[in-house]
Design a protein around this nucleic acid. Sequence first.
DNA 1: CTCCGGCCATGATCTGGATCAAAGATCGGT
DNA 2: ACCGATCTTTGATCCAGATCATGGCCGGAG
Lengths: 258, 258
Amino acid sequence: MSPIDFAYSRSADAQGNAKGAGAKPDPAGEIHPCSACTVRTLTVCAALEAEELRRLAEILQTTRFDAGHTVFGEGEPADTLYNVTSGTVKVYKLLPDGRRQITGFLLPGDFFGLSVDDSYAYTAETVTPVSLCRFPRRRMEALLDEFPKMQRRLFSMASNELAAAQDQMLLLGRKTAKEKICSFLMLLSQRASRRGHKTNPVHVPMSRADIADYLGLTTETVSRTFTQLKTSRVISLLEGNKVQIQDMDDLLDLAEGA
Amino acid sequence: MSPIDFAYSRSADAQGNAKGAGAKPDPAGEIHPCSACTVRTLTVCAALEAEELRRLAEILQTTRFDAGHTVFGEGEPADTLYNVTSGTVKVYKLLPDGRRQITGFLLPGDFFGLSVDDSYAYTAETVTPVSLCRFPRRRMEALLDEFPKMQRRLFSMASNELAAAQDQMLLLGRKTAKEKICSFLMLLSQRASRRGHKTNPVHVPMSRADIADYLGLTTETVSRTFTQLKTSRVISLLEGNKVQIQDMDDLLDLAEGA
DNA sequence: CTCCGGCCATGATCTGGATCAAAGATCGGT
DNA sequence: ACCGATCTTTGATCCAGATCATGGCCGGAG
């Protein structure tokens, strides 16, 4: 049995196409940050009692950020837990000389900012414009003590992330550039699927540099590998940062070196 | 405040020197597996109530394995949670063609075998002779439901592992061979310190091949880098798989590329 | 004691991906 | 519509670490 069936919102996608103040009206319809956030968070916390939901809604606040905004930096006091309502967030660690490793991309429904320490262990920065729910850490902890079911859900999410982290270690330590890129595309496709979006022309909102820092490569190698995959008819690059996967099974094989 | 202050046993070290049936008597004194396990686990679960401890002790079973034994394989049904009592365990994932990534080395006090799925996501194999506590998954879950404090402790441990996993991703994706080896030695030293052992001539129980598969290198590169560090007087190799660190601060700088 | 099978070290060579360099795209701003 | 800044692609070259190959070491079995 899988304790982590945590339900992503099946509602209309309020994400991605928020390209600043475009002339045409937002096709997805503008949702008021607060209501969107509440809906999202409550969906994530499905299976909770009415009382728990009410109390959760009580403590959450909402914020919006443009693309490229640092939500918090590594080492800052960790006093807030975040949940992504719309958009994409990247979290990364740096070496003193500036080398960067992105440890994850966060999509709507994902939490971040949880820390076992007094301070954040990584930096969080927006990739696209995002809206976020903020949960003050103290009040969140109190709530967790009060409602074991929420604690359990958070634990499941952490376990899930741990499994994903192990997959990523295998990728970083042992896969070739081509396998890394294919794995990455598979991941994006699978995440889209779990969130109830169409999985094939998959949306890739992040830059080549971000992909490189996520996969332990350089932008040049990422770019070359994409064109290589395009040339060998495994994928095709569509406009609007979309990638069309020709054969999902081929891609999966390539991702595992088969 | 750090919710994960989970106390490692301060008792005598029952680990490491168990090199089969040696002629001389075990200097650390042979502890009966069962009692050792109970002590260890109870220490890990410090701050629990007497009732909780009693119930925990009730469900645990103990086992011993020789070096090189597979405790469970990736994909097998995940029905047991393990806690290391003595010895070292490695957990790893494989690619179809045999490439291997070790995602962690587990020391006394560490748990493994937790799964969000029906099956284990990785293989667990002993590095040295080990003794383990087994917790049947069903009964453990029931216990967690009953005692939120235990749930909380497990959550803290998962969060900690997650932070470690992120460090490891930075290492695998962005560090050079020398930085990787230095980071690895620092890690071993710090873990020894937290467990109340002497941190300097640090014990390295695993083979070059295991180190290579943990750091995303080859055995040759690991070997070469060790001799290089030895030549430049950063470390010296002692007998009995011990490594003497000449200057801890130097090593720390080398680990971060400073 | 010697033999054998893992490990470990070290040398020689090769190569995937990094680095260096320089055109095209794309996009926001005026 | 034009311009500069940023991102992406592509080419040429380099090099850290992989691969291939060999010999030494240690520990257990006969």
